[in-house]
Amino acid sequence: MASISPETSPAPWLSQVRAVFAKEWITEMRSRHGIFVSGLFGVTAVIALVFASYTFKPSPLLAAGILSVILTFSSLLGVPRLFISEEEQRTFDLLMVLVDPGPAYFGKTLVTIVTTALTGFLLSLLYVVMVGIPVESWPLFWGSILVLSLALGASVSFAGALVLGAANRWVLAAAVAMPFLFPLVAMGVGALGAAFGDGRESDGWRNCLAILGMGVCLLALGPALVPTVWRPGSNHPRKK
Protein backbone atom coordinates (compact mmCIF):
# COMPACT_ATOMS: atom_id res chain seq x y z
CA MET A 1 0.00 0.00 0.00
CA ALA A 2 1.34 3.37 -0.93
CA SER A 3 1.60 5.92 1.82
CA ILE A 4 2.16 9.62 2.00
CA SER A 5 3.29 11.88 4.80
CA PRO A 6 3.16 12.12 7.75
CA GLU A 7 5.22 8.98 8.37
CA THR A 8 5.24 7.18 11.68
CA SER A 9 7.28 4.28 12.88
CA PRO A 10 5.27 1.08 13.18
CA ALA A 11 5.99 -1.38 15.98
CA PRO A 12 9.15 -3.45 15.44
CA TRP A 13 8.65 -6.77 13.67
CA LEU A 14 9.34 -8.87 16.75
CA SER A 15 6.98 -6.83 18.95
CA GLN A 16 4.22 -7.43 16.43
CA VAL A 17 5.02 -11.16 16.39
CA ARG A 18 4.91 -11.24 20.20
CA ALA A 19 1.56 -9.42 20.28
CA VAL A 20 0.02 -11.75 17.67
CA PHE A 21 1.39 -14.77 19.54
CA ALA A 22 -0.14 -13.55 22.81
CA LYS A 23 -3.49 -12.82 21.14
CA GLU A 24 -3.61 -16.23 19.43
CA TRP A 25 -2.53 -18.03 22.57
CA ILE A 26 -5.23 -16.39 24.69
CA THR A 27 -7.85 -17.10 22.01
CA GLU A 28 -6.71 -20.73 21.63
CA MET A 29 -6.62 -21.36 25.37
CA ARG A 30 -10.10 -19.91 25.80
CA SER A 31 -11.71 -21.95 23.06
CA ARG A 32 -9.23 -24.90 23.01
CA HIS A 33 -10.99 -25.98 19.84
CA GLY A 34 -7.88 -26.65 17.74
CA ILE A 35 -6.01 -28.56 20.43
CA PHE A 36 -9.18 -30.45 21.30
CA VAL A 37 -9.84 -31.54 17.70
CA SER A 38 -6.20 -32.55 17.09
CA GLY A 39 -5.94 -34.36 20.43
CA LEU A 40 -9.26 -36.14 20.03
CA PHE A 41 -8.32 -37.36 16.56
CA GLY A 42 -4.94 -38.58 17.80
CA VAL A 43 -6.36 -40.34 20.86
CA THR A 44 -9.08 -41.99 18.75
CA ALA A 45 -6.48 -43.12 16.22
CA VAL A 46 -4.23 -44.59 18.94
CA ILE A 47 -7.13 -46.39 20.63
CA ALA A 48 -8.35 -47.72 17.28
CA LEU A 49 -4.86 -49.01 16.57
CA VAL A 50 -4.56 -50.68 19.97
CA PHE A 51 -8.00 -52.20 19.52
CA ALA A 52 -7.19 -53.52 16.04
CA SER A 53 -3.75 -54.88 16.86
CA TYR A 54 -4.07 -56.53 20.27
CA THR A 55 -2.95 -59.87 18.81
CA PHE A 56 0.32 -58.59 17.39
CA LYS A 57 2.93 -55.97 18.10
CA PRO A 58 3.89 -53.75 15.15
CA SER A 59 7.52 -53.83 14.02
CA PRO A 60 9.63 -50.74 14.85
CA LEU A 61 9.35 -49.43 11.28
CA LEU A 62 5.58 -49.98 11.09
CA ALA A 63 5.13 -48.36 14.50
CA ALA A 64 7.18 -45.38 13.32
CA GLY A 65 5.08 -45.11 10.16
CA ILE A 66 1.81 -45.24 12.07
CA LEU A 67 2.95 -42.64 14.61
CA SER A 68 4.16 -40.28 11.85
CA VAL A 69 0.83 -40.58 10.03
CA ILE A 70 -1.15 -39.99 13.24
CA LEU A 71 0.90 -36.86 14.03
CA THR A 72 0.56 -35.56 10.47
CA PHE A 73 -3.20 -35.98 10.27
CA SER A 74 -3.75 -34.68 13.77
CA SER A 75 -1.88 -31.47 12.90
CA LEU A 76 -3.68 -31.25 9.57
CA LEU A 77 -7.06 -31.40 11.32
CA GLY A 78 -6.53 -28.80 13.98
CA VAL A 79 -3.91 -26.43 12.77
CA PRO A 80 -5.11 -24.59 9.66
CA ARG A 81 -8.04 -23.59 11.86
CA LEU A 82 -5.88 -20.81 13.26
CA PHE A 83 -5.76 -19.24 9.80
CA ILE A 84 -9.05 -20.36 8.33
CA SER A 85 -11.08 -19.47 11.43
CA GLU A 86 -9.80 -15.91 11.12
CA GLU A 87 -11.66 -15.69 7.83
CA GLU A 88 -14.66 -17.72 8.95
CA GLN A 89 -15.31 -15.44 11.93
CA ARG A 90 -14.58 -12.49 9.57
CA THR A 91 -11.78 -11.07 11.74
CA PHE A 92 -9.14 -11.38 9.03
CA ASP A 93 -9.78 -7.81 7.83
CA LEU A 94 -9.29 -6.51 11.38
CA LEU A 95 -6.01 -8.40 11.64
CA MET A 96 -4.82 -6.99 8.32
CA VAL A 97 -5.77 -3.46 9.32
CA LEU A 98 -3.86 -3.72 12.60
CA VAL A 99 -0.83 -5.91 11.84
CA ASP A 100 1.63 -6.27 8.97
CA PRO A 101 1.07 -9.60 7.17
CA GLY A 102 4.60 -10.94 7.83
CA PRO A 103 4.52 -10.74 11.64
CA ALA A 104 0.84 -11.78 11.67
CA TYR A 105 1.76 -14.94 9.78
CA PHE A 106 4.82 -15.64 11.89
CA GLY A 107 3.02 -15.12 15.21
CA LYS A 108 0.25 -17.48 14.17
CA THR A 109 2.76 -20.04 12.93
CA LEU A 110 4.57 -20.00 16.27
CA VAL A 111 1.32 -20.71 18.13
CA THR A 112 0.62 -23.47 15.65
CA ILE A 113 4.02 -25.03 16.30
CA VAL A 114 3.56 -24.86 20.07
CA THR A 115 0.10 -26.47 19.92
CA THR A 116 1.34 -29.11 17.47
CA ALA A 117 4.25 -29.88 19.79
CA LEU A 118 1.94 -30.13 22.82
CA THR A 119 -0.46 -32.54 21.14
CA GLY A 120 2.51 -34.35 19.54
CA PHE A 121 4.22 -34.99 22.87
CA LEU A 122 1.01 -36.21 24.52
CA LEU A 123 0.00 -38.43 21.61
CA SER A 124 3.45 -39.96 21.22
CA LEU A 125 3.64 -40.81 24.89
CA LEU A 126 0.15 -42.30 24.80
CA TYR A 127 1.05 -44.28 21.68
CA VAL A 128 4.25 -45.72 23.10
CA VAL A 129 2.58 -46.65 26.39
CA MET A 130 -0.61 -48.11 24.93
CA VAL A 131 0.92 -49.98 21.99
CA GLY A 132 3.84 -51.08 24.15
CA ILE A 133 6.63 -50.21 21.72
CA PRO A 134 10.06 -50.36 23.35
CA VAL A 135 11.95 -47.11 22.76
CA GLU A 136 15.66 -47.74 22.19
CA SER A 137 16.69 -44.09 22.25
CA TRP A 138 14.55 -41.64 24.21
CA PRO A 139 16.58 -38.55 23.21
CA LEU A 140 16.13 -39.44 19.53
CA PHE A 141 12.44 -40.17 20.10
CA TRP A 142 11.72 -36.80 21.75
CA GLY A 143 14.04 -35.02 19.31
CA SER A 144 12.10 -36.49 16.39
CA ILE A 145 8.76 -35.44 17.87
CA LEU A 146 10.09 -31.93 18.47
CA VAL A 147 11.43 -31.35 14.95
CA LEU A 148 8.41 -33.06 13.39
CA SER A 149 6.10 -30.72 15.31
CA LEU A 150 8.08 -27.72 14.14
CA ALA A 151 8.05 -28.79 10.51
CA LEU A 152 4.44 -30.00 10.54
CA GLY A 153 3.30 -26.74 12.15
CA ALA A 154 5.23 -24.67 9.61
CA SER A 155 3.91 -26.70 6.65
CA VAL A 156 0.28 -26.69 7.67
CA SER A 157 0.44 -22.99 8.56
CA PHE A 158 1.82 -22.25 5.12
CA ALA A 159 -0.98 -24.20 3.46
CA GLY A 160 -3.61 -22.58 5.70
CA ALA A 161 -2.30 -19.12 4.80
CA LEU A 162 -2.46 -19.84 1.06
CA VAL A 163 -6.05 -21.03 0.95
CA LEU A 164 -7.61 -18.03 2.69
CA GLY A 165 -10.36 -16.70 0.45
CA ALA A 166 -10.70 -19.96 -1.45
CA ALA A 167 -13.76 -22.15 -1.75
CA ASN A 168 -13.59 -25.47 0.23
CA ARG A 169 -10.67 -24.14 2.27
CA TRP A 170 -10.42 -27.09 4.66
CA VAL A 171 -10.06 -29.72 1.95
CA LEU A 172 -7.86 -27.46 -0.11
CA ALA A 173 -5.55 -26.77 2.85
CA ALA A 174 -4.93 -30.51 3.15
CA ALA A 175 -4.26 -30.82 -0.59
CA VAL A 176 -1.93 -27.83 -0.67
CA ALA A 177 -0.04 -29.03 2.43
CA MET A 178 0.54 -32.44 0.82
CA PRO A 179 3.82 -31.76 -1.01
CA PHE A 180 5.35 -30.50 2.24
CA LEU A 181 3.90 -33.23 4.42
CA PHE A 182 4.92 -36.30 2.42
CA PRO A 183 8.68 -35.71 2.74
CA LEU A 184 8.16 -35.08 6.45
CA VAL A 185 6.32 -38.37 6.86
CA ALA A 186 9.07 -40.19 4.96
CA MET A 187 11.83 -38.65 7.06
CA GLY A 188 9.75 -38.98 10.25
CA VAL A 189 9.50 -42.73 9.67
CA GLY A 190 13.29 -42.87 9.34
CA ALA A 191 13.88 -40.89 12.53
CA LEU A 192 11.25 -42.59 14.70
CA GLY A 193 12.13 -46.01 13.27
CA ALA A 194 15.70 -45.53 14.47
CA ALA A 195 14.39 -44.42 17.88
CA PHE A 196 12.37 -47.67 18.05
CA GLY A 197 15.45 -49.71 17.15
CA ASP A 198 15.20 -50.07 13.37
CA GLY A 199 18.50 -48.94 11.87
CA ARG A 200 21.33 -46.90 13.28
CA GLU A 201 20.73 -44.05 15.70
CA SER A 202 23.02 -41.77 13.69
CA ASP A 203 20.74 -42.25 10.64
CA GLY A 204 17.80 -41.25 12.82
CA TRP A 205 19.55 -38.03 13.85
CA ARG A 206 20.37 -37.35 10.20
CA ASN A 207 16.66 -37.63 9.38
CA CYS A 208 15.91 -35.27 12.29
CA LEU A 209 18.33 -32.76 10.83
CA ALA A 210 16.65 -33.00 7.41
CA ILE A 211 13.21 -32.47 9.00
CA LEU A 212 14.56 -29.49 10.92
CA GLY A 213 16.04 -28.06 7.71
CA MET A 214 12.74 -28.31 5.90
CA GLY A 215 10.86 -26.77 8.82
CA VAL A 216 13.30 -23.86 9.05
CA CYS A 217 13.10 -23.35 5.26
CA LEU A 218 9.31 -23.07 5.43
CA LEU A 219 9.49 -20.86 8.51
CA ALA A 220 11.80 -18.48 6.66
CA LEU A 221 9.90 -18.63 3.36
CA GLY A 222 6.47 -18.02 4.90
CA PRO A 223 6.85 -14.42 6.14
CA ALA A 224 8.58 -13.51 2.88
CA LEU A 225 5.98 -15.03 0.55
CA VAL A 226 2.67 -14.95 2.41
CA PRO A 227 2.32 -11.11 2.45
CA THR A 228 2.03 -11.15 -1.35
CA VAL A 229 -1.02 -13.39 -0.99
CA TRP A 230 -2.62 -11.66 1.98
CA ARG A 231 -2.06 -8.18 0.66
CA PRO A 232 -1.50 -8.38 -3.09
CA GLY A 233 0.22 -5.24 -4.49
CA SER A 234 -2.10 -2.30 -4.09
CA ASN A 235 -1.11 -0.94 -7.48
CA HIS A 236 -1.47 -4.22 -9.27
CA PRO A 237 -1.71 -3.54 -12.99
CA ARG A 238 -4.26 -5.89 -14.50
CA LYS A 239 -3.23 -5.22 -18.05
CA LYS A 240 -0.53 -7.47 -19.39
Binding site: M1, A2, S3, I4, S5, P6, E7, T8, P10, K23, T27, Q89, R90, T91, D93, L94, M96, V97, R231, P232, G233, S234, N235, H236, P237, R238, K239
Partner: peptide
Protein backbone atom coordinates in the same frame (compact mmCIF):
# COMPACT_ATOMS: atom_id res chain seq x y z
CA UNK B 1 -7.42 0.30 3.98
CA UNK B 2 -5.30 -2.15 1.96
CA UNK B 3 -7.84 -4.96 2.22
CA UNK B 4 -8.55 -5.04 -1.50
CA UNK B 5 -6.24 -4.30 -4.37
CA UNK B 6 -7.52 -1.94 -7.06
CA UNK B 7 -7.99 -3.34 -10.56
CA UNK B 8 -6.69 -0.10 -12.03
CA UNK B 9 -5.38 3.24 -10.90
CA UNK B 10 -3.48 4.04 -7.75
CA UNK B 11 -3.93 5.62 -4.35
CA UNK B 12 -1.92 7.01 -1.48
CA UNK B 13 -2.87 7.31 2.14
CA UNK B 14 -1.14 8.51 5.30
CA UNK B 15 0.51 5.61 7.07
CA UNK B 16 -1.50 6.25 10.23
CA UNK B 17 -5.12 5.57 9.35
CA UNK B 18 -8.07 4.10 11.21
CA UNK B 19 -10.73 1.85 9.68
CA UNK B 20 -14.11 0.85 10.96
CA UNK B 21 -16.80 -0.93 8.97
CA UNK B 22 -20.15 -2.53 9.59
CA UNK B 23 -18.91 -5.89 8.27
CA UNK B 24 -15.65 -5.78 10.22
CA UNK B 25 -15.74 -8.40 12.97
CA UNK B 26 -13.97 -8.27 16.33
CA UNK B 27 -12.45 -11.24 18.19
Amino acid sequence: AGLLSPSEGSFQIAQRFGYSALDLAVY
